[in-house]
């Protein structure tokens, strides 16, 4: 079994140098090629067919996401490990969607990178520990029931209040529209939230949306 063939993509030469010495220091790895922009990365990696491409996101020509998409489209067996300064999970999501198998933050690279390369090369998924928690909680959040279970029937007034809240009206505006006091609107709001087991305004919006009450939007 030969050494793992690694391709480095980063528009900063100094970073590439650092990465190269780190990777080459590993007995079972060698850097087979490198590039300073997305397009070159995509084209050379396509020729070289490395085991793992360590891909920066912010690069000229094609960015890391686009380069990953193209490369994975043509060479699905090439593993891509994103190495970036971006801690926003949106980058992470985009890269995962584009076909990357791992996401490592540059500031943790010294300790994480080698382990991550090994993980993705073995067919696993590696996420930087500081981001993993957030991704998981969001995933859980999106799966969680949104409180739409109908616990009790709403009165006509409560339904009106709910609909208007969902449409983005303030309590004052709702009060004026229904000809009732602001305090009464607040009471209706509290009551309908209890009845429907909704815990926030966003819940109310989602509930109304689910009921098909926001057609005018």
């Amino acid at each position: 079994m030969g050494k793992l063939r690694i391709f480095l993509a980063d528009d900063h030469a100094v970073v590439r140098e650092g990465l190269k010495s780190l990777v080459n220091a590993q007995p079972d790895m060698e850097v087979v090629g490198e590039a300073g922009d997305g397009r070159a990365t995509w084209q050379r990696a396509k020729q070289l067919q490395p085991d793992v491409v360590v891909m920066d996101i912010s690069m000229p020509e094609l960015n890391g996401v686009q380069a990953t998409e193209r490369l994975k489209g043509e060479c699905p067996e090439v593993r891509v490990l994103a190495l970036t300064v971006h801690e926003d999970t949106s980058y992470l999501r985009q890269l995962l969607q584009a076909g990357a198998s791992g996401y490592v933050l540059k500031r943790g690279a010294a300790e994480e990178l080698i382990h991550a390369i090994r993980t993705v090369a073995a067919g696993g998924v590696y996420l930087d520990p500081s981001l993993a928690g957030r991704v998981v909680s969001r995933y859980i959040g999106s799966q969680a029931p949104n409180g739409a279970s109908q616990r009790g029937d709403l009165s006509e007034r409560e339904t009106d209040v709910l609909r208007l809240i969902a449409l983005g009206y303030s309590n004052k505006e709702i009060a004026a529209q229904l000809g009732i006091s602001v305090r009464t609107v607040e009471t209706y709001k509290t009551r309908l939230m209890v009845k429907l087991d909704l815990s926030s305004r966003a819940d109310i919006v989602r509930y109304a949306l689910h009921q098909g009450w926001l057609q005018e939007n």
């Binding site: 980063d10 970073v15 540059k106 500031r107 690279a109 010294a110």
Partner: peptide, 14 residues
């Protein structure tokens, strides 16, 4: 700066 810092960290690691 970020990139240079990254390079610095990597060198320190080596």
């Amino acid at each position: 700066m970020g990139q240079h810092l990254t390079a610095l960290i990597l060198e320190l690691k080596s």
